[in-house]
């Protein structure tokens, strides 16, 4: 079980308190109607799935309740860092 640092609680908390939320920094388009079918498909379904450094969303569901972002290595499973939702990509 991983330990995950919640950037809101500012402490390492056990993985069972968290829920994974998919790839991070995929903002919902402000005007979806303006997107082509292909762009909308890309927004909905296409993900990077990198080997190595991955930006992803987690939610401290059974804690402070907040969504936040994390950089995790998909090879080692190690968290490099976590940061609050809305902060710039790291």
């Amino acid at each position: 079980m991983l330990l995950i640092r919640c950037p809101y609680c500012e402490e390492d908390r056990p993985e069972v308190e968290f829920v994974y939320g998919g790839e991070a920094h995929i903002a919902r388009p402000l005007d979806p109607a303006a997107l082509s079918d292909q762009d909308w498909e890309h927004y909905l379904y296409i993900r990077r799935n990198p080997r190595g450094r991955h930006h992803e969303r987690w939610r401290h569901t059974h804690g402070c309740g907040r969504f936040f972002n994390a950089v995790r290595d998909t090879v080692s499973d190690r968290f490099e860092q976590t940061y609050k939702a809305g902060e710039a990509r790291r």
């Binding site: 069972v16 308190e17 804690g63 309740g65």
Partner: peptide, 9 residues
Amino acid sequence: TRTVFETVE
């Protein structure tokens, strides 16, 4: 704090 006891919040 909010946390879990086994599967229960």
